[in-house]
Structures are given as structure tokens and as C-alpha cells.
Amino acid sequence: MTLLSIQGLRKQFGGLLAVDDVSFGVHEGTIKALIGPNGAGKSTLFNLITGFERPDSGAALLNGVATTGMSARDVVRCGMARTFQDTRLFDNLTVIENVMVGTQVHYTPGFFAAALRLPSARKEERMIQEQAIRLLRQVGLEEWAGTPASELPVGIRRLTEIARAMATEPTLLLLDEPAAGLNSSETEDLGEALSRMRDLGTTVLVVEHDMALVMEVSDEIVVIDRGRKIAEGPPRLIQKDPVVVAAYLGEEYGNA
């Protein structure tokens, strides 16, 4: 079943056509990779899907509900969470607090309940915390729980941001270059974490340049170049697609 359906998305910045009539789908329970050369429009596409930017035309539907046109916050509440190429952690908070900010999106107690320490606020605070702890344990971050985000190494920063996104309980997780800046063992861990997430029921759309990782974890790949979709299919077909090889992968993958 198609969880996310991208239908003819188009976005122009001045004279630059960043995203040009792109359509594809992401099937439930799969990992789909979005690849393409730098400046192909991948991040813009992410911004359009997650409500950070408005498309000129076209739509993104999550379970049939258009997320294009929603505020970025409503997109999250609808079940689609994202990370950023340049991680956007809250450096003034600890790891667990970062994750708790994600967890608390589905809770309601506000300023009033908090100021008076109403039972509702305390109960939900406890649940927010327990959920965050469980999530940290899942991604293997519990020993970092109390560390301020500003003091984290890059790999842990990325994992923390993914944990924060997962904390919003998304049905679809969008990751923007999660392996950027990671060493090979960290990348391996990341690949395992992604596969585990998929097996636990989260669908993933990932922008990534690390081809080894992409080929290993993704069920399907969509390739865009200069704003247009140029190929889509399973990894072993994409690897051999002459258009993709010419535009992006280069010879070594063509011969593989």
C-alpha cells in the first residue's frame, strides 16, 4: 500500500526550477532512498513534503491526506517527522530533553496545568519521560541521556535527532543525509538502526549520498537530477540504469 504519494510537485525559485513535476510513491513498511547529485532538488522536495515550503503545484499525500499546504507542525502531528542535513538539535537541552520535546507533541497540558502542578501535568510528564527513556534505549543512546546536545560527537547528534523525530511517533520518517559526517562503523550502526525501524513498522524516506548504505538498506530508490525524476526502482536495477550511471553514480557502479 502506498503510504506517501507525491503527485506532480513543482517548485520554482526565481529562474531556478528546483523541483519539476516529480511524482513517486513510498510503500508502507519500506525504506525508500532519494538520491541525486548535489543541487538536484532533494532537500527542496523534503521541505515541500514536510510543510517547510509551499509547492507551486502538485501535492504530497500521506495516507490520502494532503500534507502540502499544512503547517510544518501539523505535518508532524499527522505522522510525518523529519531530520535535517545540518542537524537541528536543541543545543541548550540534554539528549533526553531533546527527545522529550518530540515525545510531548501528542500531549496537551499547557502553562496553566504546569504552573499549578496539576495531576494531569505530572502524570503526562511522567509518561513523556518514560517514552523518551524507552526510545533512547531502543537507539542505544541511554548512556548519553544527560549529556547536553552541544557536547555530542557528530554520530550521536545524528542519532539523537533521529530519536527526537521517532519520538513524535511518525508513520513516515524522512531523513536528510543521516550518514553525512559519520565514520564507517557509525554508518554501519545507522544502517542497522534504519532496518530495525522499518521492521518495527516505520516507513522511511531517506536522502543519502553514501551509496553503500543506500544499496544495502533501501527497498526502492528514486533518482532525481536537476529537479526531475530520472529513474525509480529496486537498487540492483538502479545500479545498472545507464541514465542514472551517467548522471550520478559514475563508472564504478555501472560496472559493478
Partner: peptide, 19 residues
């Protein structure tokens, strides 16, 4: 509580907070 963390997250970065 929750509102305090929400406030701090704005200080930490609005884009991350929105996301």
C-alpha cells in the same frame, strides 16, 4: 514541565522546534 521544554526548544532553534 512540557511548556518549559517547549520554550527552551525555541531558544535552541526554531526550525528544529517546528520539526
Amino acid at each position: 514541565f512540557r511548556p518549559g521544554r517547549a520554550m527552551l526548544s525555541l531558544h535552541g532553534g526554531e526550525i528544529g522546534a517546528v520539526a
